[in-house]
Amino acid sequence: MDINTKKVTKNAYRITKQRYKTALRVRVPGGRLKAEYLEILQKIADEYGDGDLHLTTRQGFEITGIDMDKIDEVNAIIQPVIEGLEINQINPNTGYTAAGTRNICACIGNRVCPKAQYETSGFAKRIEQAIFPNDFHVKVALTGCPNDCIKVRMHDFGIIGMTLPQYDKQRCVSCGRCVEKCTKLSTGALTMENYKVTREHDKCIGCGECVLNCPTNAWTRNEEKFYRLAIMGRTGKKNPRLAEDFILWIDEDSIIKIIKNTYDYIGEYIDRSLPKEHIGYIVDRTGFIEYKKWALKDVELSPMAKVASNIYWGGIRY
């Protein structure tokens, strides 16, 4: 068999330990799909694979045990899934156009979860539309609230929902529930003074516990959506580490612009002697200040946004 492995991997198929067998990674931006697509995945698994589906760590499916010479056939069968999930594609029936930029993960978000501040899957799809297909190795994840169930701090871009609580002191009955919840579950940003509540903005992480627990609707959410953007978290060999906060109280459009700008930065600075270089290591090499210059190009942040002046990542060093 003569097959270009680079083309195989770019097409979202894996070179596996079992010679002549491959596995297809099906991306599901935002981790949500119509159940009907499972029928197609089952068909591929049963007829071309080993009958199994692996649930990937990035909320996709991996169909294992596919013969390498069946890639074209499988690409034709998977087409309705690619179209149905609105995955950008250059040519129909050729499967996935790239694999470097990984599936955009999201927690279940505010379609279901009471704690979430926004519809995570929808925002994930918007990001997917903006950055896929792309060969650069970038991982993005979105979580509805600072509980961070999807673990965005282990990603290059971690997006955490924030709400800006609004306080109507006329509606407040001084029950103290918000203060208690904020102190016990969150950061202790609320204090009671003269029977009314004061919020320390710099301590507030926008988790919304005050709103969730207010029995009189004295605490409500702002109509605007805000996010915490944490960057350059990673697992891996060299220096696994959690993402650090880059911008607090940032808006959706600015996040997308920053991620797109990051691709320009990668294009400029990536070490092309390596098969792939992960964005975080590029930032380590150029320094954060240079990255920040590129990332914020033409980004118009609202006055609410608070940008880190510098970032020093921690993590494990060997």
């Binding site: 505010n110 501040q117 926004y118 519809e119 959410r221 702002n222």
Partner: peptide
Amino acid sequence: MAYKGTFSDTDSIR
């Protein structure tokens, strides 16, 4: 009242 409910993106009717 749009966005004023207990949960995000929900109304409060008051």
